[in-house]
């Protein structure tokens, strides 16, 4: 990607973000069913009360005006009131977000730790059994439904072997005061290594469920990038200079092979956002994904709308970062 391409993407970014907001707003505005009726469902409200609520929410305004208001509010983090919690949507989401981010980060860590050695090994030993096994596993990885993989892990490691808990984030009695919302940090800050370990064991299965399919994909990318790098002159030269195999592989070759991997990883992080909804539902993980799924069934539309917008904006920004990173890391692109 050239510098001009980065500029082009920079110009496109606001257009895509605007388009995304239009679609998210449209999903909501075109929904059959009246939000006021849902809000007042369990109360005996008069016609006038309903009309006044509708006026307060701005629902009697023309749709274009409502969109502008929605956009302005969204930009300031105001997504309205969660019907269910009777608190600002922003607050409810902010409360759940750390759990989701923690899970995503650990899943990414799992993916990198598995994919890098596997990808490098497969590239070094091209066409070996390991290389062939990797392509088979990758195909498996993309064919595996995430929710079922999670259930299999629960069956094997939680139900039968009892190594990990079945679900949840932390057991009763191990809770620590909320500091950052990231349990791995909070437990350590509270000086509770026992609680840290328990939080970690709760994290293990969901993080593996999310991380391993990503690892399969990532390992393939690293393998082909590494194979390409290993065939270049500078690697041959480094070897001819008499540098050790390990030094050549990990210092000289891997650095460049990781460029496409970083890009793929940034994009995959966005896909993990969708995967989170599934995995959090399977493991009863109290994050944003599960909150969204629950809100759908509670017809808590403002929250669903805000979360979908948040997911999409994050995804767009991550893709944009992937492009920037690619341009920044790749010396062929650097200006």
């Amino acid at each position: 990607m050239s510098f001009s391409r980065v500029l082009e993407r920079l110009v496109q970014l606001p257009i895509v973000l605007l388009g995304v907001s239009v679609i998210v707003f449209g999903m909501m505005a075109l929904t059959p069913g009246d939000p006021v009726e849902i809000m007042l469902a369990d109360q005996r409200a008069t016609e006038e009360q309903a009309a006044s609520l509708r006026r307060d929410l701005g629902l009697d305004r023309p749709i274009a005006e409502r969109f502008v208001v929605f956009l302005g509010n969204a930009a300031t983090g105001d997504f309205g009131i969660s019907f269910f919690h009777r608190r600002p949507v922003f607050e409810v989401i902010a409360e759940r977000l750390p759990a989701t981010i923690e899970l995503t980060l650990v899943a990414l860590l799992v993916a990198v730790l598995v994919a890098v050695p596997l990808g490098v090994a497969a590239a070094v030993k091209r066409d070996s059994w390991l290389d062939r096994a990797l392509s088979a596993i990758s195909l498996f990885g993309v064919s595996l439904p995430g929710f079922w993989f999670g259930i299999l892990l629960i069956l094997l490691f939680a139900v039968h072997l009892g190594w990990f808990p079945v679900g949840g984030r932390i057991p009763f009695g191990a809770e620590v005061p909320r500091l950052t919302g990231f349990l791995l940090i909070d437990t350590l800050a509270a000086g509770r290594p026992d609680a840290f370990l328990r939080a970690l064991s709760h994290l293990a299965l969901p993080a593996i469920t999310l991380g391993l399919p990503t690892a399969a994909l990532l390992a393939r990318v690293i393998r082909s990038a590494m194979a390409e790098v290993l065939a270049t002159d500078y690697v041959l030269f480094a070897e001819a200079k008499g540098l050790s195999r390990r030094r050549v592989l990990f210092l000289h070759a891997l650095k460049n092979a990781l460029i496409p991997a970083v890009t793929v990883l940034a994009i995959e992080t966005g896909s993990l956002l969708g995967g989170n909804m599934i995995v959090e539902t399977v493991f009863g993980w109290p994050g944003l994904g599960r909150l969204v799924v629950e809100s759908i069934f509670a017809r808590n539309y403002p929250l669903v709308q805000a979360a979908v917008l948040l997911y999409a904006v994050t995804y767009v920004l991550l893709n944009f970062c992937a492009d920037l990173l690619y341009a920044a890391l790749n010396p062929k692109v650097r200006l």
Binding site: Q12, I15, V16, L17, G19, V20, V22, I23, V24, M27, G270, S271, L273, G274, G275, M277, I278, V292, V293, I296, V304, Q305, V308, Y311, A312, Y315, V316, N319
Partner: peptide
């Protein structure tokens, strides 16, 4: 571009 701006599952779940 806009539709690609949504993670697939998020888009489908939202709809």
């Amino acid at each position: 571009d806009t539709l690609l701006g949504f993670p697939y599952l998020v888009f489908a779940i939202g709809l």
